[in-house]
């Protein structure tokens, strides 16, 4: 080996200091080129999936550590890891862990699990949990959602969906519909869309659940146009992408208030009539009545395709953070 003349001993010692890890905590951390890298990785992984997968992560182990349930996200991550030849340990009830019940901190749990595996996928009910985990972890942390904070891998797959379905992101008008205050997928998506040029966001939301100020200001600072358009029909006429989210009953102070707004934000066959021909409807799923089943058969209903794009995107993310 030619490089044997390098002083291996010295190099290994320097490496013993903690490695700078490829965490994915926030969509804010990504620049346009890096977002496009993930999209290109996902495209490559989609073609690998067609061949049944690969073995590039042979011998690597992923923990899916979920402090709140999300079967879809967890299965999508697990599928991605298995399709890359890696292995998985998983729990969806980490909140009921004996240790958590006994009062173990998230940080301690992460320190322990990081000793078992090569990468941790973390879903947690508190904002900022992913960053706290990353601050103590010796392996990469991939956030699969923290409270009402962020959900960066969902946002990446959402962007991949837009790219696959419409061919580009620059110049698009995106209507964000529903609960924009607590909908963390929306926050992460806005951070990603903000990196693109001439993007226009229409916020179609009840006054009680607007886009948070810090998220809106981030977009404005990046040159994105952010408009309030409470009328779904008017938004649907203009949008290239309608991003629908669930309106959660428990977020409203009174049932009357909930009943007053919920009907205004339902996509149905009537919405299809006013939508642009090439536009798409997205939804992070699960839905609870905010898109009527009659919409499903329209080719512009992209939400089930969107859910399938999650596997190649998460394969790309795992490959990125585990490759040497």
């Amino acid at each position: 080996m030619v490089c044997g003349c390098i002083n291996i001993q010295g190099n290994e010692r320097a490496e013993r200091t903690r490695e700078q890890l490829k965490h994915l905590i926030s969509a804010k951390q990504l620049q346009k080129t890096e977002i496009m890298e993930f999209i290109d990785r996902a495209k490559h992984m989609a073609s690998i999936l067609k061949q049944g997968g690969t073995h590039t992560l042979d011998g690597k182990l992923m923990a899916a550590l979920f402090f709140e349930p999300s079967t879809r996200t967890r299965l999508s991550f697990e599928t991605a890891m298995l399709r890359l030849g890696g292995q998985v340990i998983s729990t969806e009830s980490a909140r009921e862990f004996s240790s958590a019940v006994k009062g173990e901190t998230l940080e301690d749990t992460i320190r322990v699990v990081a000793g078992y595996v090569d990468v941790i996928v973390l879903r947690h009910h508190e904002i900022g949990a992913a960053a706290r985990a990353a601050s103590v972890s010796t392996v990469p942390i991939l956030s699969a959602g923290d409270g009402a904070g962020e959900h960066p891998t969902q946002a990446l797959l959402d962007l991949y969906t837009i790219e696959r379905e419409l061919g580009h992101v620059d110049g698009l008008t995106v209507a964000l519909v529903g609960d924009l205050l607590y909908g963390r997928t929306v926050h992460s998506l806005v951070y990603l869309l903000s990196q693109f040029t001439s993007v226009r966001l229409l916020c179609t939301a009840p006054a009680s659940t607007p886009l948070p100020d810090d998220v809106r200001d981030f977009a404005l600072a990046k040159g994105v146009s952010v408009e309030y358009e409470p009328n779904l029909e008017r938004a649907a006429r203009q949008a290239d992408v309608i991003y629908q989210t669930r309106i959660q009953k428990e977020r409203f102070s009174s049932l009357a208030e909930y009943d007053a707004v919920k009907g205004k934000y339902v996509i149905d066959e009537g919405t299809l009539l006013v939508m642009k021909e090439h536009a798409i409807i997205m939804h992070p799923l699960p839905r609870a009545g905010e898109i009527t089943p009659g919409v499903d058969k329209d080719p512009r209903a992209a939400y089930f395709r969107q859910s399938h794009y999650g596997v190649p995107m998460r394969m790309g993310i795992l490959q990125h953070c585990l490759e040497r």
Binding site: M1, M36, E37, D40, R41, K43, H44
Partner: peptide
């Protein structure tokens, strides 16, 4: 290949940002 310390004639396919 600086890690293995040798060089070989090969083709490279690049799609987007990725060596595929």
């Amino acid at each position: 290949d600086p890690v293995m310390g040798y060089s070989t004639v090969q083709d490279l396919l690049v799609e987007g940002q990725i060596i595929t």
